[in-house]
């Protein structure tokens, strides 16, 4: 029992991030890419790393209102991510549909289909808000390990 919690603490210092675009207008995606990748907001400090494959991911950032067309793909992608995982919804679209909310092609809110752990509202949210969301997700992830 003594050693295991320490290993868990170490493990939470390596959250790998994966992005799912659920029909987003790309505003939030640009914001996410700049948050993580440009030097100024460098979240590699937290040990984060973008990964190309959903199977390597720990924290999933979902943007967009979940359009009807993309729903199956998003659900399948979500299933591919190994447990324990944490979901962060980025932007106002996953919460309410945002500016697309009355469209016939939109299934928001997204938490009817996927359990969302952290919401980062905004259109698009500020990079600082996204980083705060990731930090919060890491705390939730620690409890799930």
């Amino acid at each position: 029992m003594g050693l295991i919690p320490d290993f868990k603490k170490i493990a939470t210092r390596s959250p790998w991030i994966y992005r799912i675009n659920a029909g987003s207008c790309n505003g939030c995606d640009v914001e996410m890419a700049t948050t993580a990748l440009i030097p100024r907001y460098d979240i590699e400090r937290l040990g984060c790393q973008y990964c190309g494959s959903p199977k390597h991911a720990d924290i999933v950032l979902i943007s967009g209102p979940l359009t009807v067309r993309v729903k199956d793909a998003v659900l399948r992608m979500y299933e591919e991510i190994p447990d324990p995982k944490v979901t962060v919804a980025v932007g106002v679209c996953p919460i309410s549909g945002g500016i697309f909310r009355e469209s016939y092609a939109v299934l928001a809110p997204i938490d009817q289909y996927i359990p969302i752990d952290v919401n980062v509202p905004g259109c698009p949210p500020r990079p600082q808000a996204i980083i705060a969301g990731v930090a919060k997700a890491i705390e939730i992830w620690r409890e799930r390990l």
Partner: peptide
């Protein structure tokens, strides 16, 4: 090292 430990916890 953190990455390796983390991967040990994943399914």
């Amino acid at each position: 090292f953190f990455d390796i430990v983390k991967l040990g916890f994943k399914r």
